[in-house]
């Protein structure tokens, strides 16, 4: 199993957002491998399959049909095989309720989707190159939401 690239998964039902996401990583040229899924069901099916390659970072949209991000987060954290995956919530809104709930459920960071491509690239680069060990140890409610 080649382990010299960073494996990234995005679960988002919005086609445009998936496009922005992959375009951004294309332009970043960071030696990453990006997989995208159209909803929570697809994501969980993949993660639960035998030959699944678990990602280094999982970007999770909250508002998805069939199975939303919160449900996915619950399942992942309940499964010892996947519970160590770094999870970045990737949502349009940053309502207090959502931030609170995902923080409690054990997500590692909360990203509000930026409204410019430049910013998107900056945020993704920062997240992917993050030292998760360090970040998770000093995680609290104030630094959970990523400031742009």
């Amino acid at each position: 199993m080649p382990n010299d690239y960073i494996h990234i998964i995005l679960a988002d039902d919005d086609e445009d957002d998936r496009l922005f996401f992959t375009d951004a990583f294309d332009e970043l040229k960071m030696n990453t491998k990006v997989n995208t899924f159209n909803d929570g069901v697809e994501l969980m099916d993949y993660l639960n399959s035998e030959d699944a390659i678990l990602p280094n970072v999982l970007f999770l949209d909250l508002n998805m049909p069939l199975k939303n991000g919160i449900e996915c987060l619950n399942e992942i954290k309940a499964n010892s095989k996947m519970s160590d995956i770094a999870i970045a919530i990737y949502s349009t809104s940053a309502s207090e309720e959502d931030i609170e709930e995902t923080f409690v459920l054990g997500a590692n960071i909360y990203i509000k989707k930026p409204s410019s491509f430049k910013q998107l690239k900056k945020v993704l680069a920062e997240v992917v190159s993050m030292n998760w060990q360090y970040h998770t140890n000093s995680l609290n409610k104030d630094n959970f939401l990523m400031r742009l």
Binding site: D16, S95, S116, F117
Partner: peptide, 20 residues
Amino acid sequence: SHDLQEPLRKIQTFISRLED
């Protein structure tokens, strides 16, 4: 306000792409 944000954000992102 919430749902209006999503298309607007995309419009803004596409504008930034166009600009770039």
